[in-house]
Nucleic acid binder design. Sequence first.
DNA 1: TCAGTCATGGCACGTCGTGTCATCACTATC
DNA 2: GATAGTGATGACACGACGTGCCATGACTGA
Lengths: 192, 192
Amino acid sequence: MGRWQPGARERLEQAALDLFLEQGFTETTVPQITARAGLTTRTFFRHFADKREVLFAGEELVPERVARLMAEAPPSLGPMELITEGLAPTAAEIFEGRGLDYLLRRRAAIDAEPALHERELRKFSLMSEALEQGFRDRGVDDLTAQLAAEIAVTTFRIAVTRWLNQHGDPDLPATINQTLAAMRHLTNTPST
Amino acid sequence: MGRWQPGARERLEQAALDLFLEQGFTETTVPQITARAGLTTRTFFRHFADKREVLFAGEELVPERVARLMAEAPPSLGPMELITEGLAPTAAEIFEGRGLDYLLRRRAAIDAEPALHERELRKFSLMSEALEQGFRDRGVDDLTAQLAAEIAVTTFRIAVTRWLNQHGDPDLPATINQTLAAMRHLTNTPST
DNA sequence: TCAGTCATGGCACGTCGTGTCATCACTATC
DNA sequence: GATAGTGATGACACGACGTGCCATGACTGA
């Protein structure tokens, strides 16, 4: 790094997001992205597996991060307790460093393109699998582990959406706790 | 229909599933599928939007079906009551006509290919959106509607997976009710 | 008999994503 | 300070995907 401008990956992410918002995902070609970033098409695919991945790079680290946090939690905590205690701080950690403005622009691009939404769902699915394994490692039975993992991810996903829709007004941990409370209320009161 | 062999769509689905299982999704080309079905490549894309869709055709009807069933349910039922009452029979209706053997083969193909799993997640997401709208139409507030929809779809998805893993042993409605019970138990007992 | 409809065939074409080799700055070692 | 190694990038070819467009031919209805 010196012969080439540093931060090629970041330049590609920036150019791609800009172009997706300007003219749409489908209408944006990889050569357009690389031209704006001052690189070639081949280099794009060295950094990202495919055109969609440019908006999700780095998220493959989240599952292992989640696994580590779960392993560090007190073994005495049951699944729902762990979610109640750990989901909010973990979510805050995941989004550290990313500005709200970036997250909103990224959200807009994903919402406008089903193919990108599809990829995002896969990322959440991988996160759920990591959580499920984490619960099993804590001695939780298979079905409960799977259910707890899905509840955690679903709560996380809904809370983040609401948080972004409100432009970050109540902060993310607060929104997560509100969402968790609503989830508890819903499942505990059949006649609601 | 007479000049051409009838059931072109079904032949394509059959050939595609067979080939995916024989040699993998990526290794299977669309011309291979159409050759086995006695058709041309162009015809494949008239029936299916893309290569993955050949395993999910017809599922776009599920959301409107769900919407209809929700509208017909007694308005007095709350979200969780509706799920408890309606999920099992609805699931049974969705799978009517599809043999267990077909479902198992389809499951194997999807599990072997992340791209297919991705598409399946999108189908569930669309189902969730339909449920969410259905709940809102019944007067449920936005957040509760979203949560209830996700809980219903998650339960459905997990139950179907377990049901297929057991080769259909306890029938699907029973498995769904077991899964729902486990979900209730999990969310109602913080110290589990 | 004839016009309309509709599923399919056939072809061209742009884009995606990969394999492969060349280039060249930086680094380590002697 | 010469030399070999490393690693990111450029350049090119290529197969597969997916679409636009027009032609074909069997069926339908007047």
